[in-house]
Amino acid sequence: MAVGERDESGDSGVVSAVRDVLDGSLRARLGVTEDQNNLMGFLFVAPNVLMFSVFLLGPVLYAFYISFQEWSILRNAGTWVGLANYVDVLTPLPVQGGLTNLQLNTSVFTDPSVNLFWYSLKTTVIYAVGTVPLQIYGGLAVALMLDKRVRMKKAYRAAYFMPVMLSGAASAVMWRWFLAADGVINNFLEPIGELVGVQLAQNWAGNPSYALGGVMLMAIWGGIGSNMIFFLAGLQNVPEELYEAARIDGASAWQRFRHVTWPNLGNTNFFVIVMAIIGAFQVFGIALVYSEGGPVYATTTIVLLIYQRAFEEGKMGVGAAMAFILFLIIFAFSYHQYRHRQQEEVTY
């Protein structure tokens, strides 16, 4: 990631050459040999290297292998099926026809019975598009408001941060009640609806058209607080002189935000967007606990689909194949954002 590279470049060249010389002389002074340093270094990192090999790197390779297997949890063994799992998951493709007359096959996105993977990918994208901007810019708005001279700032900050402390499972159970047909939210909506003559109260969780909306509402509610904290931290790093200069130049509040605050929040913004989207693509717990993926697949997100295939139906091979495709999507996105960010930095 960006961090590592920046650190390395910071250490490179003359600085690191000098450091090497100094380290060497120090080592000589202390009587510590290079071998001893190597040994100690390795011993100190050994537990982590072991854990990462067994629970991260090994499993990634193992998952890749499993994705080519038809796995039976009952026999705890698999049979090699080649690309069959990938084909099963991805077909019918969102495009059809030959290379010359390629057409979009939108039915995979509109009908879950055509291809559930593409359908749940669409659901996940809708979820991401609907939640991420509101989580981030809601968080930014709150941070900007609280960065001003507001009384009881600490209490407000605590209030916005409270939902962040919550387990997704707990928040899903709570919102399932608030959004129930006879729940608290409808209790508010009913009189308003009567006033304007519209049926506002709905069976929010039981209706396929609204169920995903409930999950999204919950995610926005739980996501604003953490982004607020990130932006509050980011705002501390904006040099005050810049505001001063802008003020002397007669810049309006909006201009100050646009030309001083916003460019200086670039790093925070990049991080927050990447994390939020990666998180959104892996949404699972709240969708499972809120509505178990239903009704009629309305809240079946990709990770929920992987969970159902692998752990409820025991199709580990299919699950692993889906997980790898999701990995590729997330990787491509992060890489794209990273390159985009680098280009932006050059233009500043």
């Binding site: 072991l50 090999s53 067994v54 790197l57 090994g58 499993p59 390779l61 193992y62 292998y65 499993i66 026999r75 705890n76 063994a77 698999g78």
Partner: peptide, 22 residues
Amino acid sequence: MTHNGTKMTRRHLVATGAVGLA
């Protein structure tokens, strides 16, 4: 049968570098 299954899985593990567990 159980035996076969287990052996096979063990081979998978070895192949993927999780040898220490076997």
